Lab assay of single mutants.
Amino acid sequence: RTVITEEFKVPDKMVGFIIGRGGEQISRIQAESGCKIQIASESSGIPERPCVLTGTPESIEQAKRLLGQIVDRCRN
Rank of each mutant, 00 (worst) to 15 (best):
G22Q: 08
E48G: 07
L66S: 09
Q38R: 10
A63H: 00
I70W: 07
D72L: 08
D12W: 03
L66P: 00
T54G: 01
I19Q: 11
E61W: 06
I60V: 12
T54S: 08
T5E: 11
D12N: 14
S27D: 08
E58Q: 09
E61K: 12
G20V: 01
D72G: 12
A63G: 09
A63Q: 00
V15N: 02
C51A: 08
R73W: 08
R28W: 06
K36F: 03
Q69D: 15
A40G: 13
S33V: 03
S59V: 03
T5I: 03
P57H: 07
I29M: 07
D72H: 13
P47D: 11
K13F: 03
F17W: 10
G23I: 02
R28T: 09
L66H: 05
S59E: 11
I46T: 15
V10P: 01
E32A: 08
I26N: 01
N76Y: 12
Q62Y: 07
T2R: 15
C74V: 12
D12T: 09
S43D: 12
E7N: 15
M14K: 02
R65K: 14
I29R: 00
P47C: 12
T2A: 10
A40H: 12
K9D: 05
L66E: 08
K64G: 01
I37N: 01
R28L: 05
I18N: 02
A40Y: 06
G23E: 12
S27G: 14
R73K: 12
K36W: 04
I60D: 00
I19V: 12
R21K: 13
I4W: 06
K64T: 03
L66A: 12
R49V: 10
F8L: 07
E24R: 15
G23S: 08
D72M: 08
A40Q: 15
R75T: 15
S41R: 15
F8N: 02
I46F: 13
I46L: 15
G55Q: 00
P57L: 06
I29C: 04
C35I: 02
K64A: 02
I37E: 01
I39G: 02
T5H: 09
M14S: 05
C35E: 01
E7R: 10
V71F: 07
G23W: 04
E58W: 04
I70Q: 09
S27A: 12
L53T: 00
Q30S: 10
T54H: 13
P11S: 04
L53C: 04
C74E: 11
S43W: 05
V52M: 11
A31G: 10
G23H: 08
G20P: 02
Q38P: 00
N76M: 14
S59W: 00
E6F: 04
K9G: 14
E24W: 15
G34R: 08
S27K: 15
S33I: 02
G20M: 02
Q25T: 05
Q30C: 08
E42H: 14
K13L: 04
K13M: 03
G45R: 10
C35T: 04
I26Y: 02
R1T: 15
S27E: 13
E32V: 09
I4C: 07
F17N: 05
T54P: 00
T56A: 08
T5W: 04
Q30L: 02
C74I: 10
C74Q: 14
E42F: 07
G68F: 04
A40K: 13
G22T: 08
K9H: 14
P47F: 07
T5P: 02
E6W: 02
K9V: 11
G55Y: 00
R73N: 15
E48L: 09
T5M: 05
V52W: 10
Q69A: 14
I4E: 10
R75C: 06
G22S: 08
Q62V: 14
M14Y: 04
E6M: 07
I26E: 02
D72C: 05
I39R: 01
E32Q: 15
R75M: 14
E58N: 07
S43G: 11
V10A: 03
M14G: 02
S41H: 07
L67C: 02
R49Q: 08
L67E: 01
G22F: 07
A31W: 04
K13V: 03
R21F: 05
T56E: 08
E42K: 11
I46K: 14
V71M: 13
T56F: 04
I29S: 01
M14P: 02
S59C: 05
F17V: 12
F8T: 11
I19A: 08
F8I: 08
K9I: 07
Q69M: 12
V3Y: 10
V52P: 00
I19P: 03
K36M: 09
I4K: 12
Q38H: 10
K13W: 05
R28P: 01
G34N: 11
Q62T: 13
L53I: 13
G68D: 14
S59H: 03
E7F: 15
V52Y: 06
T2L: 10
Q62E: 13
S59Q: 13
Q38M: 07
L53G: 00
A40N: 08
S59I: 01
E42G: 13
R49H: 09
I39F: 06
P50S: 11
P50K: 12
V10R: 00
I39E: 02
M14N: 07
P11R: 02
T2M: 12
C35Y: 01
E42T: 11
I18Y: 03
R21D: 09
G20F: 02
E24L: 06
G34F: 02
F17G: 10
A63T: 02
Q62N: 11
S33M: 01
E24D: 10
